[in-house]
């Protein structure tokens, strides 16, 4: 890892102010992606701004018809929150499928969303549930937030503070995991709210998380895995790599969508 200047602000305001002044700065949340990337010298920020000592960035709260999760809330806490398990069990379930226990003890929801790894789990939940990403500057709808591979609508120096998830009638998440990294080769999050069904796919898209409109249409007609019999996803725009080719990923999307629908509650 190349050397950097380390900053540990104790408020979001201070973190933003450091970021405004420092050249080539990066925010550090749980570090589960950024630190390995720095170790491999694929990232070498001159300034590292550690957000871990900012007290009010973690926590889970049910507010009306939404669940609001602080950006620095660890996957472990999301997976084990009784309130969340009651309100959006699929989201708690998803957090419990990320990485392994030691990774879940460090990794955070805000870090995952800021990084927008095309195989990460949270982007699928945010897009399918219609989450709002709340930053120190504004609110961004999930629909406008994910803009490409590791790309988001976040501007330089903008910090995610909270994520608000509307509570669905039913939701489920299922993923076909890479057995070594536990990242999604294909992950599908299905959510039903009133007559609105949204299905978001992670791991498969060549430009990151996307909504599977064909599957949404089938599930809107009837919210049952039987509706997905014979639904074939196109392989265009899907990723081919050493783990799976685009055709196989296309096939997996329907399979994972069926399982996620069966699990949905």
């Amino acid at each position: 890892m190349y050397p950097f200047t380390y900053h540990q602000p104790d408020s979001v305001r201070q973190a933003a102010s450091v970021a405004g002044k420092a050249e080539d700065a990066k925010f550090l949340a749980g570090g589960m992606t950024l630190l390995p990337t720095m170790k491999q010298r694929l990232a070498s920020p001159a300034n590292l701004i550690d957000l871990s000592k900012i007290g009010d960035l973690a926590g889970i709260e049910v507010k009306g018809r939404s669940v609001v999760i602080g950006a620095m809330t660890r996957h472990f806490d999301v997976a084990n929150s009784k309130e969340l398990q009651a309100a959006i069990p699929a989201l708690a379930d998803l957090a419990g499928m990320i990485g392994d226990p030691a990774v879940r003890n460090r990794g955070t929801i805000g870090g995952s969303l800021a990084n927008n790894d095309p195989a990460a789990d949270y982007p699928a939940a945010a897009l399918a549930l219609g989450a709002t990403i709340i930053t120190n500057k504004r609110k961004i709808e999930a629909e406008d937030y994910f803009t490409g591979l590791f790309e988001t609508a976040l501007e330089e120096g903008e910090i995610i503070t909270k994520v608000s998830f509307p509570i669905p009638a039913k939701a489920g998440y299922e993923k076909f995991r890479n057995p070594a990294s536990r990242y999604a080769i294909v992950g599908v999050f299905v959510a039903k709210r009133g007559s609105d069904v949204r299905v978001a796919v992670t791991g498969a898209g060549a430009s990151g998380v996307f909504r599977a409109t064909k599957i949404e249409a089938a599930l809107t007609a009837k919210f049952s895995s039987k509706s997905l019999e014979g639904v074939k996803m196109p392989a265009e725009g899907l990723n081919t790599d050493i783990h799976a080719d685009a055709e196989y990923r296309a096939h997996l999307i329907t399979v994972m969508a069926k399982r996620a629908t069966d699990k949905a509650k």
């Binding site: 380390y6 570090g31 630190l35 390995p36 226990p101 030691a102 003890n105 460090r106």
Partner: peptide, 8 residues
């Protein structure tokens, strides 16, 4: 429990 190779 954490992975000490991935923490400053």
């Amino acid at each position: 429990s954490i992975k000490s190779c991935t923490a400053l």
